[in-house]
């Protein structure tokens, strides 16, 4: 690859700053409770921001290890669904595909989507690599800055993530139009209502199922 970056790297660049900021936020809040090493190890191994925050939230609320694990796992439950969706676009046997499947994170899943149900494996792997480095470096910075107590929210940096997801959503809606708008409205309603009754994280998995509306559409032979 001579002197050019993979499209997956380029596509993931707008997320470097917010991911570093989010990883930093995790490092800052986690360090007083977990010490300096554990948050970094957790970010390296678990590599799932919302799940880490969910598990940490249970710990700060006085919950035990089991409850914290369940909260984190529930938050990651959406990856069970995305795993089945992306599987045919991966390479190799079952084991290699299961390993490659570990690279799915929310932005890379959407960035790799081609709009027709197929996914670009290169974009998935490269954009996740950018996410991974940003997440771990951010956590490290957060652990270092934990004493200084910086506040990324004051600068509005926390909006970049939902705004980026909005950009991906707008691109999807340009493809799927009416049915896409219906699915989006249903998913938003499901997420908001289930947020009232379900543990944090679970609403995203439930709302993802709004895509099943697509089954009502008549398909070709």
């Amino acid at each position: 690859m001579p002197r050019t970056f993979h499209p997956g790297v380029i596509k993931a660049l707008p997320l470097v700053l917010p991911t570093v900021a989010l990883g930093g936020a995790f490092g800052v809040v986690a360090t007083p409770l977990m010490g300096p090493v554990a948050p970094i190890v957790m970010s390296c191994l678990v590599f799932a921001g919302s799940a880490q925050f969910a598990a940490f939230g249970v710990l700060t609320a006085g919950g035990g290890v089991m409850a914290a694990t369940i909260a984190g796992a529930l938050t990651n439950l959406r990856f069970l669904i995305t795993g089945f969706a992306i599987a045919p676009s991966l390479k190799g046997g079952r084991i290699q595909r299961a390993v490659e499947g570990q690279t799915v994170v929310d932005p890379s899943f959407a960035l790799a989507g081609r709009g027709d149900g197929a996914f670009d494996r290169g974009v998935l792997l490269w954009s996740t690599l950018v996410q991974y480095v940003s997440w771990v470096v951010g956590t490290l910075a957060g652990v270092i800055l934990a004493g200084a107590n910086p506040d990324p929210e004051a600068y509005g940096l926390d909006v970049i993530m939902p705004a980026f997801f909005t950009a991906l959503l707008v691109a999807e809606l340009r493809i799927h139009r009416g049915l896409g708008a219906l699915v989006a409205a249903l998913a938003a309603a499901c997420a908001a209502v289930s947020a009232l009754v379900l543990a944090p994280g679970a609403p995203v998995a439930v709302a993802s199922l709004a895509c099943l509306v697509g089954l009502s559409r008549r398909t070709g032979p």
Binding site: L168, E172, G180, A207, C211
Partner: peptide, 10 residues
């Protein structure tokens, strides 16, 4: 094909 739409909205 509609999963990214639902996931992003959620």
């Amino acid at each position: 094909v509609l999963l990214p739409t639902a996931l992003m909205t959620a």
